[in-house]
Simulated assay, not measured.
Amino acid sequence: MTRIVLSPGSAEDFARILDHLDRHEVDRREPRIEGILHAIDVLADNPLIGRVLEQDLRELVIGRDAQGYVALYRYLGEFDTVFIIAIRAQREAGYTHD
Rank of each mutant, 00 (worst) to 15 (best):
D22G: 03
A66H: 10
P47H: 14
V52Y: 06
G35A: 14
F79W: 12
A93F: 13
L37P: 03
L72I: 07
I62S: 06
I4A: 11
E25R: 12
T81P: 10
N46I: 08
V52G: 04
F83P: 00
R88I: 00
P8L: 06
D22N: 12
P47N: 09
V5T: 09
L21T: 04
I84N: 01
E25W: 10
Q67M: 10
R91V: 04
V26D: 10
L21H: 04
I85Q: 03
V5D: 12
P8M: 06
I49N: 11
L43A: 04
G50T: 03
E78R: 13
L76K: 12
F79L: 14
T2R: 05
I62T: 02
H20D: 08
T2V: 15
G94V: 03
E34R: 15
I4L: 13
R28V: 02
R16I: 01
A93M: 13
D65A: 13
R58W: 09
T96C: 06
R29Y: 06
R16F: 08
R29N: 08
E30C: 04
V42C: 07
P47I: 03
D65K: 09
E92C: 04
R23W: 09
T81W: 11
L43D: 02
R28N: 15
G35E: 12
R29C: 12
P47W: 12
D41T: 05
A11R: 02
E34D: 15
R51L: 14
I17E: 07
A11L: 06
G35D: 08
A93D: 15
V5F: 13
Y73P: 01
G77R: 14
S10F: 05
S7I: 00
D56L: 06
H97L: 11
L60Q: 04
Q90H: 07
A66G: 09
F14G: 00
V26M: 13
P8K: 08
E25V: 00
A15M: 05
R64N: 15
L6S: 00
Y95E: 03
A44E: 15
V42F: 04
L53S: 05
L76P: 01
R28I: 02
D65C: 01
A71W: 00
T2L: 04
F79H: 14
E78Q: 13
N46T: 11
Y75P: 07
E12T: 03
V26T: 13
R58M: 09
R91M: 11
L60T: 04
A93S: 14
L6G: 05
A66F: 01
R3Q: 15
